[in-house]
Structure formats: structure tokens, C-alpha cells
Design a protein around this nucleic acid. Structure first.
Lengths: 358, 358
DNA sequence: CGACACGATGTCAACGCTAACAGTATGGAA
DNA sequence: TTCCATACTGTTAGCGTTGACATCGTGTCG
């Protein structure tokens, strides 16, 4: 019973298989199309012109045989693997769904450029990246969630790389990140525009600031600077992403600054508790208090009321990182010095139901 | 300024590089060790015995040159790519951090067996899997979050696969999944043991049951069966994972069955709201009401009070799936018919603060 | 003392593709 | 007419490994 499926498959002539059971090769296609193997290769790679008629015959043969070039042979002969490595985050305490979105968008963008994506964990340590480079398995690497002093950076060697996140010293590197300063400023502006004057910034756990996580520091700095410009009074309260942590932070905020009407939340875990606590403390959102979050759309939309939020685009991050490595790879293949790009993506403010005029 | 890093790297003799700038090959290692290339190959693959002295010399040369076998050449000559494909979920409404955990554990387990992991999105459609098979890029594939009638299954052809999740018809396939029936039963048992008699099961959104998601149905069935055995009265309430949805569900539960003292929650999104709502309705957890969740440890621990929960092991799922594909691949390489395994992982009950005797 | 097994190593032909090099027409310019 | 550019297409030598086959001592047994 267990063998049914595969026997069924083997008895039929599957696409991509020759009568002898092997996969179709470029030579099979060449024979079927009545051309030479190299013509098939050139037809598929478009690296040299092919007459319309030849192209037609080759493409038909390819389709008929279900031909796909053998990846190993292609890598060996062409000295390019058509594979990009994607290094997952060092820590998993960051908001994970975003990482999944980034990973997916990297994979999709890479495919569009003819690359596949290899997953590499930090489990293997620096050797992992070295191994991929030395074995020619990956042509380049994308580092996700790069920290200020990311320990993966020194191990890159001359592997072409793109970093998602901004290290302290980006010289000689290509990086893309959300513009967290702009995100912070956007929050300040929105609340100021609505007439709020006393704001509380509910941040990440103290540990996040102590280890100088770039995104946390930069968001706060951007917010603080713009708040000052706009004449806002504000309080920054680090906060564990738990009910109790949030309750403590909110309690101190309301006793220190009872007139606070605007809340900026960056800590995902604090959002739910904050909304509950405001509700139980008799404050209606957005009538009595405005809440603006720094979080993905998905999260902002799941709450009641739906949250006004400043959001970076995970998809863009992935797409641009792929563009960066690919462009570095081709520059380096042309013998040129790859350009080092620093791209900061401007986040978007989406006004929903949780903010209003005071 | 931007060129500093790479110039620095190029001026030194990097490991893995020959004087001419290319990567070290097996021939270089052979020359350095004074043996033939095949001896180097055999030394590294351990496919035939090598004298201690020869091994020493080869290993030293490998280290000195920073040699790593060229992946493309290895794949071509050995007809094995040493790569496994990992197909990410079709939908992303499932609890994503668990997916990330699974992906990570797949990558780690694969490395232990000498495999690398290629990420494949459903973006390319069925062709993606076909392409990987036909190009010999992947030797096998792991499908994550498999649905009852998963449309990726028919496209597998004779690619060796392992499924995470249980399809309706697992014939001819290897699958691993959490035993959701057991999970449901565990919840019923725990509450029964504590003396609860009136239970509410707060499930997923109605749509989840309508499309017959296996995990949702099986959990409920397992719970219902055991509840009946233990003489429990219970109510099943599908529920959107929002504050309002939960409020609605809870309201109806409390009006229909005011004596309800036990709550089982499977919907992640409903947990936070449920706890808030119980609190505001004047019920203390666990004194007045016990709450048991079906969720990952991470989630259970983040609430106040910490949740008693039934949890499956994402890490195990990944590890076993890798074992399954790898064993199928080697069976098929030996010309044997791969065995079709169905593994159900028994979930664990962790008692925390949210449940207590009535 | 020859035969033979056995352990240790070497030789070399694939593996399937790419790309440099080398044609072969055809048409226009000299 | 000859020469040359243009537009295609074919030939072929690798790419770096693997693994079947061959070789060569050494020790053992009849």
C-alpha cells in the first residue's frame, strides 16, 4: 500500500526523464532540436543571439523533455552557483514574523534574478559563512538583523554581502535598513499635529538599550529630536513586554505626568497590555488618549481600536538587499570594485483609529 | 574610504586561496600532501581506509590551504547536491514564530547530516519544486505546514520528501506532526484532574474549521472525546483572535454557562484579550477560573499569570523531518523502496500559574 | 616457494555544462 | 571580383570531484 504512489510515478514517463530513467541533459535537448549543445545553452542564457527558428525548436525540445540545466554542472562550468546565502538573525527575541517576511521577500526577489536562497544559521558559527564562500556554494550572502557590532561581519572575507540593519561601521559594506530616526520623528510629528503636548514613549526592555540595539536607540533619538523641535514634553519609559511590566511603566507615567495624552509604543509585547490598562483606567482611545505604535501592519490591525502605526516595509528590505548583493556580485565579476550603498527606507505612517485630536 | 575593507582582505593571503587568487582545489591539497587527488577525496569522505600517516598529512594540507571541496564539482561527479529544500508555509496566518523555529531546527539538523538547506517559497508555484528536482539542486524536500489536501503534494513526483503536518492521505509519504488529539486530551485531563466540570473551548476563527484545518479539527476531537470520557460538560466557541471577537465569545459563554470554570484556548490571538476580560469581569485566574492554552512555551511564559500550556516541540518536528528525508534519500540511493513513516509527537503539558483546583 | 588475499594508494574517465575559438553563409563596399 | 563585416552556429577544452579499476607491496597459507 505504501508503495502505490511512487510505483505509479515510475511507470509513467515523467517530464525531465529519459527512457533510461536519467534526467534529460543539454545533449538530449540539442539532439531533439537538431542543434549543438552550445546553441541550446546560448538559447537559454541569451548570451548570444539565436535565430527565431532555432529558438523555437530549442524551446519546444526543452518543454517536451522537461529539461532543466543540471545545477552542479552549471555551477562548475560557469563558476557561478546562482545561489545566495541568507543568514538568519543571531537572536530570536526580535519580532519574528517580520523576519519571516523578510526571508520570504528575499527568496522571491532572488528568484526573479535567477538565484536560489540557502538558509544559514548562526549555529555553525563563522565557519558556516566561510564554508559557503570557499566551496563556491554561495556567490553572496545577506545578513539579517545586523547588530551595531555584528560578529558575523569580520568573517565575511571577500564574499559579497548585503546587510539588513546598520552596523556601527558600514565602510566597505552595502546595507539597507529602516530609517528608525525618521520613524521616531514621524510619531512625534503626528502627535504634535493632533495637538498633544505631553507624550510618553514606551520603549523596549532596559536590556535592549543597554546593549545599544541600533533600532531602539535611533528610534528614540529621532523621536526626541523632533519632539524637542515641536515643543513636546515627553517621558521615555523602557518596559518589559509583559502585562506587569507595562502596568508598572504606565502607573509611573500617569503618576509622574498625569496630563499625558499621547503614547508611543515600540515594544510589541506592551501594546496589548497598554490598551487593556488604558481601558480599565477609564481612558478611552482615542478620545482621552492617543496611541501610536511602531509595528508591522499586521500587528496594528489586529487590535481594537486598530492602531495608528509607523511601519517599515519588510518586503522592501529583502528586495533591496538582494539587489545590493547581486549588483556587488556582478561588479566583482566584471573586475570592478563593488559600490557600497547605504539605503535607509522611509517608514510610512498609517492613521487608523487609535489617534485623534486632543 | 569605502574600499578599505576589501583591499585589506586582498592584500593578505586568505585561507582557501592560491597565489593566483583562485580557491584551493583538491589537486592543490594532493600536491601539498604528496598524495593523489583521489586519496584526498577518500580521506575526507572516509569511503575507503587511509593510513594514519596519510590522513595526518592530508588533514594538515587541508587546514593549511583552507580547502573546501567545490560544491558544484562535488554535485556533478557524485550525483548528489547535499542540499535539501525547505518549502515554507502556503499561508502566513499560522503562528509564524513556530515556523521560524522549525526552519531553524531543520537547518541545524540538516547540517549535522552534511546537508545545506534551500528555501523555497510557494511564490513560484509547483514549478519551483519541479525545477529543484529536475536540476538536481535538491535531493529532497521538506514541506512545512502541510494541509489536509495540500496542493504541493501532487507536484512532488519522485522527489524524496518529508511533510511537517498530516495530509488526508499520507500513503506513500513520510510525515511528522504534533499529536493534536493527544494535546486536546491532555487539556481535558488536566482540567478534569483539577475538578473542573464546566469547560469552554475557545478555538480558532470559524473559517479555520470551515476549511477543515487538520490541527484545529483534531485538537477539538481529542478534547471532546476525552472530555466525554471524563464526564466534562463543554462548549466549543470558535473565535476571531481579536479583542472584540474574544469579548463576544466570552460573553456568550458566560451567559450560556455561567458555571464555566475551565477555559481551553487554542487561538493565540485570543489569549491576551481573554485574560484581560476575565480580569475585568472580576474573575481571578486561577482562583475563579483556570486557563489552559495550546501554544508554544515562549507565548505561555509571556503572560501574567504564566499559562499552563500544552506545547508541541518545533525543534523535534524539524529534526525528525530531516531524518525522514535523509533516510528516504539513502534508501532510494541504495535502490530500495523508501519506508513511509508517520510520526506523531506527543505534546507536553507544562503546569504554570493559570490553572488550579476549583 | 608460488599463489593469493588484503590493505593502501594511484590512474583516469566520466559527470553536464559553459564559453572561447572557429567556422559558414550572406550581403554590401571597395 | 575580392574583401570584410554581420549574423548565426558548431567544436571542444576545460571546470573540480568522484569512484571503478588497476597497481603494488606484504604477509599467509598450502
Amino acid at each position: 500500500m505504501a508503495t502505490e504512489r511512487s510505483e505509479g510515478a515510475q511507470s509513467t514517463q515523467r517530464p525531465g526523464r529519459r527512457p533510461d530513467g536519467g534526467l534529460a541533459t543539454i545533449a538530449d535537448v540539442a539532439k531533439a532540436a537538431g542543434v549543438s549543445p552550445s546553441t541550446v545553452s546560448y538559447t537559454l542564457s541569451r548570451k548570444r543571439p539565436v535565430s527565431a527558428e532555432t529558438r523555437r525548436r530549442v524551446e519546444q525540445a526543452v518543454a517536451a523533455l522537461g529539461y532543466h540545466p543540471n545545477a552542479g554542472a552549471r555551477a562548475l562550468a560557469g563558476r557561478r552557483s546562482h545561489i545566495l546565502a541568507l543568514a538568519v538573525p543571531l537572536r530570536t527575541d526580535v519580532y519574528v514574523p517580520v523576519m519571516m517576511d523578510i526571508a520570504t521577500s528575499v527568496a522571491v526577489a532572488a528568484r526573479k534574478q535567477g538565484y536560489d536562497v540557502l538558509l544559514i544559521t548562526n549555529d555553525e558559527g563563522p565557519d558556516g559563512i566561510r564554508r559557503l564562500a570557499a566551496s563556491g556554494l554561495a556567490e553572496g550572502v545577506i545578513l539579517m538583523d545586523v547588530e551595531l557590532d555584528d560578529r558575523r561581519i569580520p568573517t565575511l572575507g571577500d564574499l559579497q554581502a548585503a546587510l539588513i540593519g546598520m552596523p556601527r561601521d558600514p565602510r566597505g559594506l552595502s546595507c539597507v535598513d529602516n530609517d528608525f530616526q525618521a520613524a521616531g520623528a514621524l510619531c512625534a510629528d503626528h502627535l504634535a499635529d493632533l495637538g498633544h503636548r505631553e507624550i510618553a514613549f514606551i520603549g523596549y526592555a532596559p536590556g535592549t538599550y543597554q546593549r545599544h540595539a541600533g533600532y531602539a536607540e535611533r528610534t528614540l533619538a529621532g523621536f526626541a529630536a523632533r519632539a524637542k523641535e515641536r515643543g513636546l514634553r515627553f517621558l521615555h519609559r523602557p518596559c518589559e513586554g509583559t502585562y506587569e511590566g507595562t502596568a508598572g511603566a504606565l502607573g509611573r507615567i500617569l503618576s509622574d505626568r498625569p496630563d499625558t495624552t499621547g503614547f508611543v509604543v515600540q515594544n510589541e509585547g506592551a501594546i496589548g497590555p497598554l490598551l487593556s490598562l488604558l481601558r480599565t483606567s477609564g481612558r478611552t482611545v482615542p478620545e482621552d488618549a492617543s496611541v501610536i505604535a511602531l509595528c508591522p501592519e499586521r500587528v496594528a490591525e489586529q487590535y481594537t481600536p486598530a492602531l495608528t502605526a509607523v511601519t517599515g516595509s519588510a518586503t522592501e528590505l529583502g528586495r533591496i538587499a538582494v539587489e545590493q548583493v547581486v549588483s556587488r556580485i556582478s561588479a566583482s565579476a566584471r573586475g570592478e570594485q563593488p559600490a557600497n550603498e547605504l539605503v535607509l527606507l522611509t517608514p510610512a505612517l498609517t492613521i487608523r483609529e487609535s489617534t485623534g485630536p486632543i
